[in-house]
Design a protein around this nucleic acid. Structure first.
Length: 267
DNA sequence: AATGGGACCTGCGCGC
DNA sequence: TGCGCGCAGGTCCCAT
């Protein structure tokens, strides 16, 4: 999915456009994405409610409605959100707003989720979530890595460890920090781990500035692509020369996920 | 505790 | 042009 920068981009753009709008109608072209409640009950509880707040936690997007109801969106691998006057391609849930626009939850692979809850903080995925990257101190990050014998890349992607990082930004951050993605976390020197956290935040900020990475399906709320993919240095760069040392970028599998890295300068 | 595999889904690019 | 295969931004569950 959409990792932290993509979800944050959506959050910011929706904050400017749908806050205090009323959801007048709900249509559900594909009920498979609605979890934990029937689509009929979902529709009847959501219709007529005003959108009071919008926030993000990790890769989860939350719309707070009136009467302490929360709409929870998880875009997983291939989801995106748009606001337009038409029904969007791959729209699975469509919210008709008082502004006349349609807010569409789109998902080409139908792996995403939409929930309606009265207490978003009690959701298991939220309860188990680690700190946002901005909320962890370098010392704490180093400390937390020291007790982990697993590899650093799956650890970065573990939402319980740190929230919001996925397969793209984990690879880019490890490249930036010059760390081999297959290294055991506890074997990496503290100084290098501090650099990793610094790189991670730098890349997330950059991705946010570029409005996210459009690889295939992700779009900004207005349908435009995010441009961060133009700035990738290792992700999807297999066979190309490393921009830092010139060695050929390799691709391997770590934790079941494709992983690009430079065998020359990532140690 | 960590790792590997599969499941959930659809769609794209590639080789033949 | 058509088909089969591998692969894809995430997460959960199970076995070892």
């Amino acid at each position: 999915m959409p990792e932290l920068p993509e979800v944050e981009t959506i959050k910011r753009q929706l904050s400017r456009t749908v806050l205090n709008k009323t959801i007048c109608s709900v249509s559900i072209p594909d009920a498979r994405v609605i979890k934990g409640i029937s689509s009929r009950a979902f529709k009847s509880k959501v219709e007529g409610k005003k959108i009071k707040d919008i926030f993000r936690r990790g890769k989860v997007l939350v719309l707070k409605l009136e009467k302490t109801l929360y709409l929870i969106f998880h875009l997983r691998i291939a989801g995106w959100m748009t606001l337009s006057s038409d029904k969007e391609r791959c729209a699975r849930v469509i919210f008709g707003l008082s502004s006349g626009k349609k807010l569409c939850f789109c998902d080409s692979r139908v792996l995403g989720e939409v929930r309606l809850v009265s207490d978003w903080e009690k959701l298991p995925i939220i309860r188990a979530m680690g700190p946002e990257p901005w909320d962890i101190s370098p010392a704490r990050f180093v400390e937390n890595c020291r007790s982990r014998s697993g590899r650093i890349k799956p650890l970065l992607m573990d939402q319980r460890f740190i929230a919001g990082i996925g397969n793209i930004y984990a690879q880019e951050a490890l490249f930036c920090a010059g760390i081999d993605p297959g290294r055991k976390a506890c074997t990496i020197a503290g100084e290098r781990l501090e650099k990793l956290l610094y790189c991670l935040k730098k890349i997330l900020r950059c991705a946010l500035d570029k409005k996210g990475s459009t690889i295939s399906t992700y779009r900004q709320v207005d349908g435009e692509s995010g441009t961060m993919a133009e700035h990738f240095r290792v992700y999807q760069k297999k066979g190309r020369p490393c921009p830092r040392c010139g060695r050929i970028i390799r691709k391997t599998t770590i934790g079941g996920r494709g992983t690009c890295f430079c065998p020359g300068c990532q140690t």
